Computed example of a mutant assay.
Amino acid sequence: MLKTYGLSLGAGVLVGGIYALMGVNSPAPPLIALLGLLGMQIGEHIIPLCKRLKNCQPVTLAWFRHEYAPRVIDTPPPSDDKAS
């Protein structure tokens, strides 16, 4: 897991260095880029939540931990957790 974060950070530093050497700015200001990423995450997670609510299924903490925690923190779901 840490290797993935390190590679991602390294790639970002490399691209930033290339931009600096070429004398160009990043395509998007950092705040706008971060807001775009936040929007992507919200969009990715809102659809399954809406489907669950539409099917009158409960939205429990166990379900949230099983469905979303692995995606957010990049770990496998707990084996003792059952999505209700």
Rank of each mutant, 00 (worst) to 15 (best):
I42E: 09
V15R: 08
G16K: 14
A20C: 00
A11F: 11
G12A: 09
G12H: 06
I46G: 00
P78T: 02
V24L: 07
Y5I: 05
L7E: 09
V59Q: 13
I18F: 14
Q41I: 04
I46V: 10
P70A: 07
G23L: 03
G17V: 03
A28I: 07
D81M: 11
P30V: 01
G17F: 14
R71P: 01
I18K: 03
Q41P: 01
G23C: 02
P76C: 03
M1Y: 09
P29E: 02
L9F: 14
I32G: 01
P30E: 00
I32F: 05
P30C: 00
A20Q: 09
P76R: 05
N55K: 14
G39F: 03
L34C: 09
Q41E: 15
G12E: 07
G16H: 15
L38T: 06
L14N: 02
T4G: 11
P29L: 02
R71D: 13
T75N: 08
R71L: 13
V13T: 09
D80K: 09
H45C: 09
G10P: 06
G39T: 01
L14A: 12
L49N: 02
L2G: 12
G12C: 04
A20G: 00
P48T: 03
Y19K: 13
G39W: 03
G10N: 10
G39H: 00
T4S: 14
S84A: 09
G17M: 10
G16E: 14
P48F: 13
P48N: 05
L38H: 10
Y5M: 10
K82W: 11
A83K: 10
A33M: 02
G10T: 12
E44I: 01
D80V: 00
P70N: 08
A33P: 00
L9C: 07
L14S: 05
G17L: 11
Y68N: 04
L9M: 13
G12Y: 06
N25Y: 08
I42V: 10
A83N: 07
G10K: 10
F64W: 15
C50R: 08
P29H: 06
G12F: 08
Y19E: 15
S84H: 06
S84D: 12
A33G: 01
P30N: 01
K3L: 12
C56S: 14
I46R: 05
S8V: 06
S79F: 00
L34G: 04
L53N: 07
N25L: 08
R65H: 04
L34M: 13
M1P: 02
G17W: 15
W63V: 02
L2I: 12
P58Y: 04
C56M: 14
F64C: 07
P58F: 09
S8G: 08
V13W: 15
I73P: 01
R52C: 03
L61C: 08
A83I: 04
A83Q: 04
L61G: 07
R52M: 04
V24N: 08
V72S: 06
I18Y: 14
G6N: 10
I73A: 06
A83C: 07
V59G: 06
T4W: 14
K51F: 09
L21H: 13
V24D: 11
